[in-house]
Protein backbone atom coordinates (compact mmCIF):
# COMPACT_ATOMS: atom_id res chain seq x y z
CA UNK A 1 0.00 0.00 0.00
CA UNK A 2 2.70 2.45 1.04
CA UNK A 3 4.85 1.05 -1.73
CA UNK A 4 2.16 1.71 -4.33
CA UNK A 5 1.71 5.26 -3.06
CA UNK A 6 5.47 5.90 -3.22
CA UNK A 7 5.54 4.42 -6.71
CA UNK A 8 3.02 7.01 -7.85
CA UNK A 9 4.80 9.86 -6.07
CA UNK A 10 8.21 9.02 -7.54
CA UNK A 11 6.75 8.30 -10.97
CA UNK A 12 5.01 11.66 -11.11
CA UNK A 13 8.18 13.38 -9.89
CA UNK A 14 10.25 11.65 -12.59
CA UNK A 15 7.85 12.62 -15.37
CA UNK A 16 7.36 16.14 -14.05
CA UNK A 17 11.10 16.68 -13.78
CA UNK A 18 11.62 15.47 -17.35
CA UNK A 19 8.88 17.79 -18.61
CA UNK A 20 10.43 20.65 -16.64
CA UNK A 21 13.77 20.01 -18.33
CA UNK A 22 12.11 20.17 -21.73
CA UNK A 23 9.89 23.18 -21.11
CA UNK A 24 12.14 25.53 -19.14
CA UNK A 25 14.25 27.94 -21.16
CA UNK A 26 16.79 28.81 -18.50
CA UNK A 27 19.64 26.33 -18.35
CA UNK A 28 20.07 26.65 -14.57
CA UNK A 29 16.41 25.75 -14.04
CA UNK A 30 16.87 22.85 -16.45
CA UNK A 31 19.67 21.56 -14.21
CA UNK A 32 17.38 21.85 -11.18
CA UNK A 33 14.59 19.89 -12.87
CA UNK A 34 17.12 17.29 -13.96
CA UNK A 35 18.15 16.83 -10.31
CA UNK A 36 14.48 16.28 -9.38
CA UNK A 37 14.02 13.75 -12.18
CA UNK A 38 17.20 11.74 -11.58
CA UNK A 39 16.79 11.73 -7.81
CA UNK A 40 13.24 10.43 -8.12
CA UNK A 41 14.50 7.76 -10.51
CA UNK A 42 16.81 6.65 -7.74
CA UNK A 43 13.77 6.38 -5.47
CA UNK A 44 12.09 4.18 -8.08
CA UNK A 45 15.19 1.97 -8.12
CA UNK A 46 14.89 1.53 -4.36
CA UNK A 47 11.25 0.50 -4.82
CA UNK A 48 12.29 -1.95 -7.55
CA UNK A 49 14.60 -3.73 -5.06
CA UNK A 50 17.79 -2.50 -6.70
CA UNK A 51 19.27 -0.77 -3.69
CA UNK A 52 22.87 -0.77 -4.88
CA UNK A 53 21.97 0.64 -8.29
CA UNK A 54 19.87 3.30 -6.56
CA UNK A 55 22.75 4.29 -4.29
CA UNK A 56 25.13 4.43 -7.25
CA UNK A 57 22.59 6.53 -9.12
CA UNK A 58 22.49 9.02 -6.25
CA UNK A 59 26.26 9.07 -5.79
CA UNK A 60 27.48 9.07 -9.37
CA UNK A 61 24.61 10.66 -11.30
CA UNK A 62 23.16 13.21 -8.93
CA UNK A 63 26.34 13.79 -6.97
CA UNK A 64 28.88 13.64 -9.78
CA UNK A 65 27.55 14.00 -13.29
CA UNK A 66 25.05 16.72 -12.46
CA UNK A 67 27.59 18.75 -10.50
CA UNK A 68 29.83 18.46 -13.57
CA UNK A 69 26.98 19.72 -15.77
CA UNK A 70 26.31 22.64 -13.42
CA UNK A 71 30.00 23.54 -13.54
CA UNK A 72 29.68 23.50 -17.31
CA UNK A 73 26.71 25.84 -17.07
CA UNK A 74 28.66 28.21 -14.86
CA UNK A 75 31.75 28.15 -17.08
CA UNK A 76 29.92 28.73 -20.35
CA UNK A 77 27.12 31.17 -19.53
CA UNK A 78 28.03 34.72 -20.43
CA UNK A 79 25.29 36.02 -18.12
CA UNK A 80 23.43 34.42 -15.23
CA UNK A 81 20.14 34.28 -17.11
CA UNK A 82 21.13 33.58 -20.67
CA UNK A 83 18.24 32.17 -22.70
CA UNK A 84 18.39 30.84 -26.22
CA UNK A 85 14.86 30.77 -27.53
CA UNK A 86 13.45 27.97 -29.59
CA UNK A 87 11.10 29.24 -32.26
CA UNK A 88 7.34 28.44 -31.94
CA UNK A 89 7.28 26.46 -35.17
CA UNK A 90 10.00 24.21 -33.81
CA UNK A 91 7.97 23.75 -30.62
CA UNK A 92 4.91 22.72 -32.65
CA UNK A 93 6.95 20.24 -34.71
CA UNK A 94 8.57 18.86 -31.54
CA UNK A 95 5.17 18.45 -29.84
CA UNK A 96 3.71 16.59 -32.82
CA UNK A 97 6.70 14.28 -33.25
CA UNK A 98 7.07 13.60 -29.53
CA UNK A 99 3.40 12.77 -28.99
CA UNK A 100 3.54 10.43 -31.97
CA UNK A 101 6.66 8.75 -30.53
CA UNK A 102 5.08 8.45 -27.09
CA UNK A 103 1.95 6.93 -28.60
CA UNK A 104 4.02 4.45 -30.59
CA UNK A 105 5.99 3.35 -27.52
CA UNK A 106 2.82 3.07 -25.43
CA UNK A 107 0.99 0.97 -28.00
CA UNK A 108 3.94 -1.37 -28.53
CA UNK A 109 4.62 -1.74 -24.79
CA UNK A 110 1.00 -2.59 -24.02
CA UNK A 111 0.82 -4.87 -27.04
CA UNK A 112 3.35 -7.34 -25.66
CA UNK A 113 2.36 -10.04 -23.19
CA UNK A 114 5.41 -9.91 -20.94
CA UNK A 115 4.24 -12.93 -18.95
CA UNK A 116 4.37 -15.07 -22.08
CA UNK A 117 7.79 -13.97 -23.29
CA UNK A 118 9.39 -14.15 -19.85
CA UNK A 119 12.25 -16.59 -19.80
CA UNK A 120 12.87 -16.54 -23.54
CA UNK A 121 16.06 -14.52 -23.22
CA UNK A 122 17.36 -15.85 -19.94
CA UNK A 123 16.37 -19.43 -20.69
CA UNK A 124 14.42 -20.05 -17.49
CA UNK A 125 11.18 -18.71 -16.15
CA UNK A 126 10.84 -16.62 -13.04
CA UNK A 127 8.93 -19.40 -11.33
CA UNK A 128 11.98 -21.65 -11.63
CA UNK A 129 14.05 -19.45 -9.38
CA UNK A 130 16.09 -21.54 -6.96
CA UNK A 131 14.51 -22.53 -3.70
CA UNK A 132 15.08 -20.06 -0.90
CA UNK A 133 16.08 -17.09 -3.03
CA UNK A 134 14.02 -14.02 -3.75
CA UNK A 135 15.46 -10.59 -4.22
CA UNK A 136 13.00 -9.11 -1.76
CA UNK A 137 13.97 -11.62 0.93
CA UNK A 138 17.67 -11.14 0.39
CA UNK A 139 17.33 -7.40 0.77
CA UNK A 140 20.74 -6.13 -0.12
CA UNK A 141 21.90 -6.67 -3.68
CA UNK A 142 25.51 -5.67 -3.14
CA UNK A 143 26.83 -9.18 -2.51
CA UNK A 144 24.83 -10.86 -5.31
CA UNK A 145 25.99 -8.13 -7.70
CA UNK A 146 29.61 -8.72 -6.72
CA UNK A 147 29.12 -12.46 -7.29
CA UNK A 148 27.48 -11.74 -10.65
CA UNK A 149 30.53 -9.74 -11.72
CA UNK A 150 32.61 -12.84 -10.96
CA UNK A 151 30.31 -15.19 -12.87
CA UNK A 152 28.39 -16.65 -9.94
CA UNK A 153 24.64 -16.09 -9.94
CA UNK A 154 22.98 -16.74 -6.58
CA UNK A 155 19.58 -15.96 -8.11
CA UNK A 156 19.99 -18.73 -10.68
CA UNK A 157 22.65 -21.21 -9.56
CA UNK A 158 21.64 -21.77 -5.95
CA UNK A 159 20.82 -25.43 -5.20
CA UNK A 160 21.58 -26.34 -8.82
CA UNK A 161 23.48 -29.55 -9.48
CA UNK A 162 25.73 -28.32 -12.28
CA UNK A 163 28.44 -25.77 -11.67
CA UNK A 164 27.99 -22.26 -13.09
CA UNK A 165 29.76 -21.72 -16.38
CA UNK A 166 31.17 -18.60 -17.95
CA UNK A 167 33.08 -15.67 -16.56
CA UNK A 168 30.11 -13.43 -15.89
CA UNK A 169 30.69 -9.74 -16.19
CA UNK A 170 34.40 -9.68 -15.32
CA UNK A 171 35.59 -8.74 -18.82
CA UNK A 172 33.01 -5.95 -19.35
CA UNK A 173 33.89 -4.66 -15.89
CA UNK A 174 37.58 -4.42 -16.78
CA UNK A 175 36.83 -2.85 -20.16
CA UNK A 176 34.57 -0.27 -18.58
CA UNK A 177 37.11 0.61 -15.90
CA UNK A 178 39.93 1.12 -18.41
CA UNK A 179 37.49 3.05 -20.61
CA UNK A 180 36.67 5.35 -17.70
CA UNK A 181 40.36 5.98 -17.03
CA UNK A 182 41.09 6.77 -20.69
CA UNK A 183 38.04 9.01 -20.95
CA UNK A 184 38.92 11.01 -17.85
CA UNK A 185 42.51 11.51 -18.99
CA UNK A 186 41.23 12.60 -22.40
CA UNK A 187 38.68 14.97 -20.86
CA UNK A 188 41.33 16.55 -18.66
CA UNK A 189 43.51 17.00 -21.74
CA UNK A 190 40.69 18.52 -23.78
CA UNK A 191 39.55 20.93 -21.07
CA UNK A 192 42.96 22.09 -19.90
CA UNK A 193 43.43 25.82 -19.39
CA UNK A 194 44.30 27.69 -22.54
CA UNK A 195 44.50 31.30 -23.51
CA UNK A 196 41.14 32.43 -24.85
CA UNK A 197 41.16 33.19 -28.55
CA UNK A 198 39.87 36.65 -29.39
CA UNK A 199 37.58 36.18 -32.40
CA UNK A 200 37.83 39.83 -33.47
CA UNK A 201 41.64 39.98 -33.58
CA UNK A 202 42.26 37.24 -36.12
CA UNK A 203 39.92 34.93 -37.97
CA UNK A 204 41.92 31.99 -39.29
CA UNK A 205 38.83 30.20 -40.56
CA UNK A 206 38.16 32.63 -43.36
Amino acid sequence: MVQEFLFWVFGIAVCGGALGVVLSQNVVRMAFWLIISLGSTSGLFFLLQADFVAAVQLLVYVGGTLVLLIFGVMLTASGPYVTMKTSPTEWVAAAVVSSALLGLITVSAYGVDWQAVDGVVSGHARENQPEGYTTAQQGRTIRPLGFALLGMRPDQDLNQSEQPSGVGYLLPFEIVSVHLLVVLVGAAYLARAKRRVDPTAANPAS
Partner: peptide, 10 residues
Protein backbone atom coordinates in the same frame (compact mmCIF):
# COMPACT_ATOMS: atom_id res chain seq x y z
CA UNK B 1 12.71 -6.95 -10.92
CA UNK B 2 9.63 -8.18 -12.73
CA UNK B 3 10.99 -10.84 -15.09
CA UNK B 4 13.47 -13.69 -14.90
CA UNK B 5 16.31 -11.42 -16.02
CA UNK B 6 17.39 -11.16 -12.39
CA UNK B 7 20.66 -9.50 -11.64
CA UNK B 8 21.64 -9.13 -15.30
CA UNK B 9 19.56 -5.99 -15.63
CA UNK B 10 21.07 -4.40 -12.55
Amino acid sequence: NYTSLGLDGQ
